[in-house]
Design a binder for these strands. Structure first.
Ligand SMILES: [Mn+2]
Ligand SMILES: [Mn+2]
Ligand SMILES: [Mn+2]
Ligand SMILES: [Mn+2]
Lengths: 232, 232
DNA sequence: TCAATTAGTTAGATAAGGCTAACTTTTATA
DNA sequence: TATAAAAGTTAGCCTTATCTAACTAATTGA
């Protein structure tokens, strides 16, 4: 049985080496800053995780997950996202409140409990932030998507997820009136300072990279992000 | 914020000094065996709890809860019993499965979460084992009741709760076909070995103190246990 | 290519929660 | 009331997860 701490390390590793595209390994410093502990602490812990065959690692090398480590980390994320969904759907919490509560609930281990919860929620595919929920085997299909920063002037895009789960960010998204599945048009894009003017439900907003880097979108016409065949 | 361990100490103290009638303090050894740790461990921890003003205690003396300690302990029990109710009502767990899961869930701290859960369950008064659920202020009314062992030959009683929450015990209760709120008649009572013959739903069963000590009942006629005015 | 910077490791400390073994206080009982 | 048994405490040790400070290895770039 894994401890809270070990589970948090594995979860962070999934986020850094699987969800972050183009990377399948990570260094001690980056993992440390992700977990807000010191590199020395990670150095120690990674040795323990290696001893349990949860990570691949050699002194002064990079860290990556083994198959077992990946599955364990995925299960933590499955639990996190299912609890977030429960809190929003059944207990009427807003999407900016659920993450913090799920940080505790994700460490309740029972497989049976989480599978019953999944069933109770009618097997949701996405959590309140638009993130895909890993299945009972810890498998996940990460849909194609790009950040709003990558969209071009004139694009019509649909928001599918948010990257930042902090309540400050989500409350700002609420303030703008943006909801998952909403469509928006990129009216202006200022290369100089990267400010973008978007139009949502008839209203225009000027937003900064702090916002656009944390919004995931797909093309509203073909619903794809990459390999979009639309003419724009 | 209290740790898991501190919460478990306070919960155990509520059970030993408030729910167990006739006692408002407990010794180190009894608390230790209740928590399945060694007396030395309790000795240390009780000093820490006293430093936090959660218990009253003097070296070589008995342990009792302060008002703050009692409320904290009650809140743990509130969370435990509400989660048990959720697991049974919403996730279809049987009453012999819920206790173990609630042992983990009871340590999720958010007041808002537990109050929302309470509302979602429509403010249940009792948990799956017939135990009263403390209210939002940690207050509880423990209803009058006696153990089945205390019933006399000829009594007609109604089961209101079980004392033992272990799955072995609860599965035995299931096997006999007994459900909370069921009525039964005491047909025979053998003083020699304390075996009792009960009749439930037309069927007779011979049961031992291991069973009767762990079943709480009230008189089926007046619904009281103590001060029963019925003529039997 | 070598010095500076960045990344990573090690040693030693701390705090929580637990243990055993030895000791002390309290209580029960002959 | 003396003494044995029961109850409780203390000292010293362990493990997990963290830290700081000092050290070493790897990378970068002039
Ligand atoms: Mn989250
Ligand atoms: Mn989420
Ligand atoms: Mn229980
Ligand atoms: Mn219960």
């Amino acid at each position: 049985m894994l401890s809270f701490t070990e589970e948090n390390y594995l979860k962070a590793l999934v986020q850094l080496t699987i969800f972050e595209d183009g990377k399948d390994e990570v260094g001690v410093n980056k993992l440390a800053s992700c977990l807000t502990v010191k590199p020395a602490t990670v150095s120690d812990m990674v040795r323990k995780l290696k001893a349990k065959s949860l990570v691949n690692y050699e002194k002064y090398g990079k860290i990556s997950l083994t198959a077992v480590g990946k599955k364990s980390g995925m299960m933590v994320i499955r639990r996190h996202r299912l609890w977030e969904t429960f809190l929003q759907e059944k207990l009427d919490f807003s999407w900016d409140e659920v993450h913090e509560l799920a940080e505790e609930l994700e460490h309740i281990h029972s497989q049976k409990l989480i599978n019953r919860l999944d069933q109770f929620l009618d097997f949701p595919a996405f959590d309140p932030h638009g993130d895909a929920i890993p299945n009972v085997d810890g498998e996940i299909v990460i849909p194609f998507r790009k950040t709003l920063s990558e969209a071009k002037k004139g694009d019509v895009v649909k928001i599918v997820a948010v990257k930042d789960n902090s309540s400050e960010f989500l409350q700002y998204v609420d303030k703008i009136g943006l909801v998952i599945q909403d469509e928006m048009t990129i009216k202006e894009k200022e290369e100089f300072d990267s400010l973008i003017t978007i139009k949502i439900k008839g209203k225009q907003h000027v937003v900064s990279p702090r916002f656009t880097d944390n919004i995931f979108v797909v093309c509203a016409k073909c619903l794809k992000a990459k390999d979009c065949t639309c003419k724009h």
